[in-house]
Every structure is written in C-alpha cells, then in structure tokens.
C-alpha cells in the first residue's frame, strides 16, 4: 500500500476484497477459469436478452425478467473474480502495494490489446455486413455499440480473473 492515507471506504473495501469466505470458488486455476467462463456466458445471455427486447417489435417483458434473474448469479461471479484478484481493479491505487499496482497495469494493458483486436474484428464484420446488405451497419449500430461498451468495461475483470495466481502455500505453521 502507498503512504497516502486510506479513507474509511478504502479500508472497508480492502476488508471486503480480502474476505476469504469465497475461497473455494477460486482456489485453483481451473476454478478461476470456470468462474470467468460462467461470467462471460451470463454477460452474453443478459446482453442477448436486453438486445432481444430492444429489437423485438412486440416489446415483450419476459426477456427483461429473465435478465434480472440472471443478474444475481452474475453478481456472485463478479464477486468471485474480485475475490480471486483481491480487488485488483476495484480498490483505489492507494490501497494497493507495489506488486498489485504493477499487476493492475499488466492486466489493463493486456485487456486493452484484446479489446483492440475485438473492436477491429467487429468493425471488419460490420463493413462486410454493410457490403452485403446496405442497412445492416445502421440496424445493428446500437446493439453493437452497447455490447462493445459492456465488453470494454468487463474485459479487465476477465483478464484479471484469468491472470490471478494461486495463494502462496502455508509452509511454516506461522499463519499465511
């Protein structure tokens, strides 16, 4: 942690992010990958349901209800990833130590690279769709933009979850 004084909010967030009750969910690499995969799937499902509501002519209510229900496991998965990373992205800089700050920079850089590739692929896809059917880019502009925003927001969390390492093992009987 830095020498800058932490606020009460910082301290409570630090406690929350280091709460080990959820440890079984993210104790191993395989479990962390599974949690990230579930989070990606839930995000896609929620996004698809909201997009369906936006694009459907009849404006049905059920997709929104299902999306709200899916939001609960999504929040649990978000908490598990944050627990696995010890709040690497949620905590303020002053609540992180030098290793965590460096780790956060690495995560953000990698997420940025992945997002650049995804956005390039999306732009290419839209251009190809536009060449095939003139109206396609305009019709899909809003959902694509919202999806891009959501993925841009969540990509660092997914990358951080995948890059998180195992807890150092207990080796001396002196406590963690």
């Amino acid at each position: 942690m830095t020498t800058t004084r932490m606020t009460r909010y910082d301290r409570s967030m630090l406690r929350l992010m280091n709460d080990r009750r959820g440890l079984p969910l993210y104790a191993t690499t395989a479990r962390r990958r599974l949690v990230v995969a579930v989070h990606v799937a839930l995000t896609a499902a929620i996004g698809a349901l909201i997009t369906h509501t936006y694009l459907a002519v009849a404006e049905p209510v059920w997709p929104l209800v299902v999306a709200m229900v899916l939001l609960l496991p999504w929040m649990v998965a978000t908490g598990a990833i944050n627990g696995a990373t010890r709040g690497l992205l949620e905590l303020r800089e002053r609540a992180l130590d030098e290793r965590q700050s460096a780790e956060r920079s690495r995560v953000l850089a990698r997420a940025h690279r992945v997002m650049t590739l995804l956005l390039a692929a999306t732009a290419a896809g839209l251009l190809i769709a536009g060449a095939a059917a003139g109206d396609a880019p305009r019709a899909y502009a809003a959902p694509v933009l919202v999806t891009a925003l959501a993925v841009h927001w969540l990509m660092p969390l997914w990358v951080a979850g995948l890059m998180a390492r195992d807890e150092p093992v207990e080796d001396d009987g002196l406590g963690a």
């Binding site: 010890r86 130590d97 290793r99 150092p168 406590g175």
Partner: peptide
Amino acid sequence: RAERKVSRQDLAAAMGVHYQTIGY
C-alpha cells in the same frame, strides 16, 4: 522469516504490503 518466527501477515503489515506479496 520462518527462522525468526514471523508470519507473512506480520511481515506484510510491517512492510505495508499485501501478505500475498511476501509469499510471491
């Protein structure tokens, strides 16, 4: 650290870092 019977938590607290950092 083990020889001096200092836990990771105690050393981390004294250094102002996360205990995982000591482990790494």
